[in-house]
Design a protein around this nucleic acid. Structure first.
Lengths: 311, 311
DNA sequence: ATTATCCATATATAATAAGTATGGATAATG
DNA sequence: CATTATCCATACTTATTATATATGGATAAT
């Protein structure tokens, strides 16, 4: 079997027609018919149901299609990587970041630090949610992910703790408590809690809810935010209050004030995850720099942690 | 670029020698040399440093090697998956069961049997009524349905008979006939008949009523039960009598006695239905196992059919 | 100094993918 | 209801490309 066969397979499946797939592939229809048939014989399964007008994926074809797509995706990345290497860049790291992670100053700091010691390594950043990032790691679409533990399926992944970030309460402007620097959770329990969907970060989500529970109150659930950082605009719009990592105070949304939480306060844990085994040297090097930076950062004063803000 | 090229690349890298890699690959050395050179040209990078004795990976080669391994690994998995699908050992089956079917011991037996021979196939079960199951089959929301014939719209479905289950009369405790082991339908014709709505199982419903008719009596219609198995609690509550598949005697409701019916007795037929045409091998395999189990079960004695009950 | 090992090149051959021409089946159209 | 158009399959030819064979050059081992 050949990558070409997979490309043919995916294209025919996409268009539902051998003829049109042949057009898109820049070839004639008969050879494509033959190649598809050949692939089916090689695999011993029928991928398409031939109909009078076009073809339709069989259930087996439906099962195999996503896997074929992954292989094609990786092959394309392989080519891109090689191209980058050909241009003299000595490596490439695909870095995945969980929601709101880039707002934590230590993360871009660590990235800049790495770029200083390894200027020839190109970085591509992607922001997503923890479960999606872990899946991307498993499928080798990402090399390093900074996530909010726990990871759904830690097998074949190596996860190490980075830091625990304090959380703060976000209140809309004009709120009766807006002038209180420190607030406890039970003081805002009756306000609608703006929170992101649990599937985007189960660990952090649960930490927030259990802190409410420990405080002896039950939060009033408000509107769901599309991501972690998406809660702030909703708070600004007066939809309710939210509990967010302190780094979100960097979003100068206007109309939002941030307040330290008196005990019990949830904390937002961050960890770095890579595939265990067979890793490129730059990957372990990056993780090392990242961990060092985070350890140092945790000992710093809040003023030094967030230089530009009033905290 | 081709998967073959990646295999050559990985093998040469592993052995550090084109000659020995050619041996392992079952080919001669010159074509392998050419293919490696060709791959290098295609990618625009030098993968190996040619030395007088063997070859050595360049830094770039070192970087690309793990990615090539990942692609090869995925390709191998793709082949294995296809092979498994061809043999019917992989995949997922959505199984629909008509009312009270799971109570018939042979059904869970057959499912367990199937899980033994195809442990990698995941199963999802759903209990519903015959017309709804047939609709689900048509819309591909279910792969296999065990239903009570006839099916409303048999076009594009393939239905095959499984077994005829004996029915029994369910009487409330303290009923004058509660001590009679065998009862005929005309003896209970004046008692309210608890029965499920006809739309939940037209075939079985009609079979019961026509048995009454053949016996020369007309049943007194009692309360409707929500499903087939739902008749038993109503009988226990003294709302009337019911005619149910013998397997329902497994519901130890207390307050209900079950009695063999003397001729004419309705029978509860079960059949298995799948979409005709293009089915995954696991589907036909499951049906085969199911039919075998049912054929065997029909020849068994009642004591063996219902091990834990007094029948 | 000689031999052996290993990779590269040149040429020939075999394998195979792509192209061309055409037929059959069915849905769309008048 | 007949006609046309669409789409896939088959048969055959051509072009491409991978492999095999033969051989030479370079260096390490003996």
């Amino acid at each position: 079997m050949d990558i070409r066969h997979l490309r043919y397979f995916v294209t025919v499946a996409k268009l539902g027609s051998i003829t049109r797939a042949a057009e898109e592939l820049g070839m004639e229809q008969p050879p494509l018919s033959q190649q598809i048939r050949q692939l089916e014989q090689k695999l011993g399964v029928k991928l398409f149901e031939r109909q009078t007008r076009g073809v339709k994926l069989t259930e087996i074809g439906e099962t195999l299609l996503p896997r074929a797509r992954v292989i094609l995706e990786l092959q394309a990345q392989f080519m891109v990587t090689a191209e980058g290497l050909a241009r003299g860049e000595l490596g490439h790291i695909r870095l995945g970041l969980a929601g709101a992670v880039p707002l934590l100053p230590v993360i871009p700091q660590a990235i800049r630090l790495f770029r200083d010691v390894a200027p020839d390594v190109t970085l591509s950043l992607e922001e997503s949610n923890t479960p999606a990032l872990c899946a991307a790691l498993h499928e080798s679409r990402t090399d390093i992910a900074i996530i909010r533990p726990p990871v759904p399926d830690p097998a074949r992944l190596s996860v190490s703790h980075l830091l625990d970030e304090e959380t703060v309460i976000a209140l809309p402007r004009g709120h009766p408590l807006a002038n209180e620097p420190v607030i406890s959770l039970d003081m805002v329990a009756q306000e609608p809690l703006i929170i992101f969907p649990r599937e985007l970060g189960p660990g952090f989500h649960d930490a927030i809810l259990s802190a409410y529970h420990v405080a002896g109150v039950t939060p009033t659930m408000g509107q769901q935010a599309p991501q972690i950082a998406g809660t702030v605009p909703l708070v600004a719009a007066g939809m309710g209050v939210s509990v967010v990592p302190r780094s979100l105070c960097q979003i100068h949304a206007g109309g939002v004030t941030f307040h330290t939480i008196s005990d019990p306060a949830p904390s937002a844990t961050l960890a770095v995850a890579i595939r265990s085994g067979q890793n490129m040297p730059i990957v372990t090097r990056f993780v090392k720099i990242l961990r060092t930076a985070c350890r140092k950062w945790e000992t710093m004063s809040p003023e030094a942690q967030f230089p530009q803000t009033g905290f």
